[in-house]
């Protein structure tokens, strides 16, 4: 089930722009991403989640182009299935089915696999995560961290070359976060992760810092994160919370 790591995998954003109700929320943004681990940081409302949605093809850009491993993820939904998977911030928004097995099976059947193939793939992914005993578990009875892991398995089992993680650790305790991070570190697919926590980017190659929908910084993880953290502390002393948008 492990996706093949293709050196030619490229995420290309060309003059990307997203507007909601005529108001620009992202871009123009032009970027080429090939790194195995790329982090996205920025304040609330800086366009991070919009970027994640556009990359995963859940939303089409207002202008410009997104190409992920050779396809347009918003237009070619079938092609997008084995190229990019997304993990939402809240696993309750992602889980559709009442049992773990059905939840993981859904995406595989969507990819056109037979029932037998899907069942074998479910066994394989549960075994890989040492969670075979979760198979018949009711999804609503799981803890938040366990739900997040089910979502991760449901995405991984489809074998995407890219995985977009939208603040996957929010609301989780430190121990749960560390365990999930360990599982994520073993993923062979390329990862694009949004997070507010600089520590969650351990081992990351590149970090992109968005501010007001535009690129503020882009470079090797450590120095960008250091400047981001310093700036956040500086802004933390101010009171721009009182500023209303519009």
């Amino acid at each position: 089930m492990a996706p093949v790591d293709r050196p030619d995998d490229l995420l290309r954003l060309e003059d990307l722009r997203v507007a909601h109700d005529g108001c620009d929320v992202l871009g123009p943004l032009t970027l080429d991403i090939t790194a195995r681990r790329t982090g996205i940081v920025g304040r609330n409302g800086s366009g991070k989640t919009t970027l994640a949605r556009v990359v995963a093809g859940l939303q089409a850009p207002t202008a410009g182009r997104v190409t992920i491993s050779g396809i347009d993820p918003a237009k070619d939904r079938r092609g997008a299935l084995d190229r990019v998977g997304i993990l939402f911030q809240n696993p309750d928004h992602q889980i559709i089915f009442p049992t773990v097995e059905e939840e993981i099976t859904f995406g595989l059947r969507q990819q056109g696999r037979s029932k037998a193939e899907a069942a074998a793939a479910v066994t394989a992914i549960l075994t890989r995560f040492d969670k075979l005993h979760w198979r018949a578990a009711a999804t609503h009875s799981l803890s938040q961290g366990q739900k997040q892991l089910v979502c991760l398995m449901a995405v991984l089992v489809m074998g995407p070359r890219w995985i977009v993680l939208d603040e996957p650790f929010s609301g989780l305790d430190i121990a749960t976060r560390l365990q999930l991070m360990r599982h994520m570190a073993r993923i062979e697919a390329r990862i694009l992760m949004i997070s507010h926590d600089p520590e969650s980017f351990a081992g990351y190659d590149r970090v992109i810092w968005l501010e007001g929908g535009a690129l503020r910084e882009d470079g090797p993880a450590a120095p960008v994160l250091a400047r981001f953290t310093a700036q956040m502390r500086h802004w933390g002393d101010a009171d721009d919370l009182s500023h209303l948008a519009g």
């Binding site: 939904r77 998977g85 889980i95 559709i96 995406g107 969507q110 990819q111 056109g112 037979s114 029932k115």
Partner: peptide
């Protein structure tokens, strides 16, 4: 709001695309 989230979750995994043979297979 929930319906929006579910729509996203479905879309992220192929939505209700008429995928050939999926219904009948198995």
């Amino acid at each position: 709001d929930d319906a929006d989230h579910v729509a996203d979750a479905l879309k992220a995994r192929g939505g209700v695309l008429p995928i050939p043979d999926t219904d009948q297979k198995g």
